[in-house]
Write a protein that binds this DNA or RNA. Structure first.
Lengths: 211, 211, 211, 211
DNA sequence: TAATAATCGAGACGGTACGTCGCGTCTTCTG
DNA sequence: CAGAAGACGCGACGTACCGTCTCGATTATTA
């Protein structure tokens, strides 16, 4: 379950008493529980997690190098899986994609951890890299796939770099999640974003004037 | 300089030795210095700032309620002022706006603090509110102003909510700054984003097919 | 009161808030209290002392380098002062000297610490040296003084090394204190020891037969 | 070898793999090795002994209840056997007895353990009792035997309690071993002690003056 | 010119958490 | 079954910061 583990034992045979998976779970669940109780992340200390999980501190340090590594695993536990894409049209797929982000943004504990990952970015580049590679990049790949399909099918312009297109689509939802957390991630937002992007911000027809 | 000060003395006359502005500056500069030396934010403790600035801890607490309030002021010191808008066209103004964000994203210390503000968001809502109100909202107002001008001038569609338009423009740059910090905030990016948005992702003409 | 302090500040002017003597006392008293409650020395942890004294751990470490240094000071607090010597005769002075040792041996907390000092002897030679110099040697000096007076007055043979004489007198009481702690340090023991030593173990008169 | 063993299996037949005596030896030898390397007793942890002996911790706990019980057995391994008494005269026997103590005091590892036994006296009374009964009392019995022989033969006064006499003889050597470990346990000390005791500290003849 | 009062650097103070180590028990696999 | 290995809950270790609190020493203003 926690593939990010820093001190993973090799796959081959290991001697001595094996680590208990139950303990592993109870630790991660303790963190989740604390977050759901509204405990601020800063106050989610290893000490407290150990107490909550009914576990020795060493047991935690045996598995994770510190608070951050632990949180990564928790994050993976929490992050929603790859969204179901209807496949009816590229436009609908993009809407579905944004919808999953919107729902993620509405989940309090998810955001809480996301913010913390941001905060630790400079301190633990490897950590950020880990989060980026598994969570961010995964989602990005999905997006790129849809975009490329759109280009192939003619639904999306072929003269734009696919990753730029992807960023144009995902960026606004991230902004609302991150910069305006008290604001509305209102229903229907995803569709509005996609449609506006597809049609363009400038008016259609002969009356275009910029440039 | 620090208008966020929580424990401001009344404007009227005060007795006793007045607070030294030099001390104030040296504290903020100490934080900046540490950040520039690459010290992770987590390790920028009040204790250490005091040591670096050659100042007593109480002197810091006399001015700011805690690490976070102090950081806000540092942030304001660091954040670039409102961007110069050329005013030649709305499109050029939007590009200028994004350019200022792009340059901000390239400044290491700026990002460092930004991430930390994110991290403290849930712990200190008031703090986030402060940052939001002064920094985020200020920038947002500028953007909205440009957007509204574009709608009025016909450069931007009038059937879209202005704040949605603003988010569509700013979002992608935020995404690159925040989620792909090792990636390219390459020259010319701002223009590409604005132009792609204005024209739309879907091909122009009769061949449009999404439902 | 604690002249053994390892981290003594120089006598000259020191800056910052001065250390509280009250705190110092409360720490030492906490140790004594625990000992009197019968808490085994091994379980008298710094952590527990801090809790008992209502004091932060750092406050203890600021004054003493560790458990052992602290105990030295406690020991000095507990050890009885120099015994009152009647001065009527050297024999009576010796009895008084042993009496003070006997009473010390009967005091539980005193013995507890004494044993611990023994145990730490090899680990912390400096520590033992400190205890030796202040407690052991002080007592020894007193004894030697009496012995020398006895030699001068003719009460004690002049052909024996004074320190050997002193050891002959003190040794038996130490033995009973240390090796037979459950045994009797019965009343009148001191006099019996002194008298037996003065008169000798071999019978007086013509019947002596050893080589 | 370890007759103190707390968890001895019944003498009758046991099933399964029998305990390895080699393992037993290697554990005790590991302790001795560590002591000879000058490792402070406090740092001779079960954990470390197991590591040094190349043995599982449980294997140690299967044989001894804890560090202290183990040390007792080590002590018995180290303590010199009953001294050879020449038997030529009681005086010579006493000298031989003290000599064995003197040599013990000169052996570093022996003293180290002795001190530790003292330290644990209050914590583990049973432990002390065990050490007392086997080591201390054994030596004491030997001494008492000699003393009684001396009384019978007229070499020692008959009006003194034998155990008092024994303590008078052994005490001084214990004192030098324990309280003045850096001091001289010089050659010839034993004889000097015995002779001084037999003859008495007060001058012989008509000039005696104490009351 | 003094008295008064808030400032300053320094650092002690009661706390909480850190990450490590040893305790004695337990659980796994190998001989 | 014994044995090595090592996980486990526990609790102490000594350190670092937290935010508050004295200290003596500096400045200002007010009397």
């Amino acid at each position: 379950m926690p593939p990010t583990e820093q001190q993973n034992r090799p796959a081959e045979h290991r001697r001595g008493r094996p680590r208990s998976e139950a303990v592993e779970r109870s630790i991660v669940e303790a963190v989740v529980k604390l977050l759901e109780e509204g405990v601020p992340l800063t106050q989610v200390s290893i000490e407290r997690v150990a107490r909550t999980a009914g576990v020795g501190k060493a047991t935690i340090y045996r598995r994770w190098k510190g608070k951050e590594e632990l949180f990564i695993d928790v994050l993976k536990d929490i992050e929603p899986v790859d969204p179901e894409l209807p496949g009816t049209s590229v436009r609908d797929d993009l809407v579905a994609l944004l919808e999953s982000l919107r729902r993620r943004g509405l989940a309090k504990r998810s955001s809480a951890l996301l913010y913390n990952v941001f905060a630790q970015m400079q301190n633990y580049p490897e950590l950020w890299r880990a989060y980026h590679d598994t969570v961010v990049e995964a989602r990005r790949r999905t997006g790129m796939e849809v975009v490329r399909r759109g280009i192939a099918s003619g639904e999306i312009r072929s003269d734009l770099a696919p990753d730029l297109v992807n960023d144009l689509i995902v960026g606004p939802m991230l902004l609302r999640t991150v910069l305006r957390p008290y604001a509305e991630l209102e229903e229907g937002l995803s569709a509005r974003v996609v449609d506006a992007l597809l049609e363009g911000l400038a008016p259609r027809g002969s009356e275009r004037q910029h440039g």
